[in-house]
């Protein structure tokens, strides 16, 4: 239970950063931290104590206890997608910086075009 709670605290740190920071890069970093906590949560839920990694080294041997392969398969694709979406957020940030000359979202909001 402690692990789940700590994982959620990491998620809350990310939400706190998104809500209170004014810098666009800091907001992207906070979103990345939230993504990390979600990946960790899925991997934690799938863990079985005493289980091996989901690989069958010798197909002839009888079944051994493995950790759950389903959450890991979900996280595997999402890790790569997170990289692509983070890059897209960063390109938006650099485009806004080119136009307004600042990363401050309140200033960008006041300038309006």
């Amino acid at each position: 239970m402690t692990l789940y709670l700590l994982c959620f605290v990491l998620f809350m740190v990310g939400i706190y950063g998104v809500l209170t920071r004014r810098n666009l890069i800091k907001i992207v970093i906070s979103l990345t931290i939230m993504e990390f906590s979600i990946f960790l949560m899925l991997a934690l839920v799938g863990y079985v104590s005493g289980g091996q990694a989901p690989l069958v080294l010798d197909p002839e041997t009888p079944y051994v206890q493995v950790v759950d392969p389903l959450p890991q398969a979900m996280v595997l694709t999402t890790l790569v997608i997170a990289l692509a979406t983070n890059s897209m957020l960063l390109t938006m940030a650099i485009r806004l910086y080119k136009k307004y000359g600042t990363f401050d979202i309140r200033k960008i909001n006041e300038l309006k075009g």
Binding site: M1, L3, Y4, L44, V45, G46, Y47, V48, S49, G50, P54, L55, V56, L57, P59, Y63, V66, V67, D68, P69, L70, Q72, A73, L76, T77
Partner: peptide, 30 residues
């Protein structure tokens, strides 16, 4: 933590090698 109930995944873990032929179970599911 560590006491995960493998309801649907139990089928994946037991049958994936035979059905898909992939010894990496993650790739079999994926």
């Amino acid at each position: 933590f560590g006491d995960h109930a493998l309801r649907m995944s139990d089928f994946y873990a037991r049958e994936a090698v035979e059905l898909s032929g992939s010894t990496n179970l993650i790739k079999g599911v994926l």
